[in-house]
Write a protein that binds this DNA or RNA. Sequence first.
DNA 1: CACGAAGTACGACACACATCATACTTCCCA
DNA 2: TGGGAAGTATGATGTGTGTCGTACTTCGTG
Lengths: 108, 108
Amino acid sequence: MPPWEIPSDQLPPVAPVQKLLRALADPVRLEMVRRLAVDPAAEAPCSDLYEGLNKSTATHHFKVLVEAGVLHPVMVGPSRGHRLRRSTLQEAAPGLLDALMAAMAREG
Amino acid sequence: MPPWEIPSDQLPPVAPVQKLLRALADPVRLEMVRRLAVDPAAEAPCSDLYEGLNKSTATHHFKVLVEAGVLHPVMVGPSRGHRLRRSTLQEAAPGLLDALMAAMAREG
DNA sequence: CACGAAGTACGACACACATCATACTTCCCA
DNA sequence: TGGGAAGTATGATGTGTGTCGTACTTCGTG
């Protein structure tokens, strides 16, 4: 369903903090975001962002992240994928993503 | 049950990021933390931290926050209350609390 | 001491949601 | 043009957890 390759200016706005936290407070989704965050390009095909999950479950998680304003669905090479909306996130919640990623890195 | 006034060095450690997010990703708990965060003393009696909630529900939320390492149960004047574990949190996830509070403040 | 205020413990309940299986759609490419 | 790979949609399911009511504990105060 997601109209693929939505122009950036038509993406959903970043959700309010509480919803944003809900979106990130799932191990699967947090890992998806982490993988994008450590990627310089901040984008990857769907299947690079999870493991050991049913595809439809993954789709569900992507949907949550997109609706929370965290991800931007894009084409990555030949297949669908997602880009981390770094700058938008940084505007909405300055330092939040960095703090989270740093804390996760510290945990190993 | 909570042995009231646990010495700081016997408090549960701050939970891993994912659990920490889970603890904060509830509107009631996030508001509790916010109220403590804007208080210079960072502490308050239980009943100052919520409204329109059953007392037992509030107790439940406090428990979650204490177990996540966010709050320290303490006596505040004559009644029980909680203190925000600012410095411990800052050590475990530098900048996280600040980023969250700033983003919330911006939302009004 | 007895009362009331403030929290906690416990059990019940309902709803949210993470997960899966299956079927369907797209689109690349041989 | 026909496979197959990659995602999506939908419905079923089970668990987690936010909520409440009620009963119990503590403690300060009249």
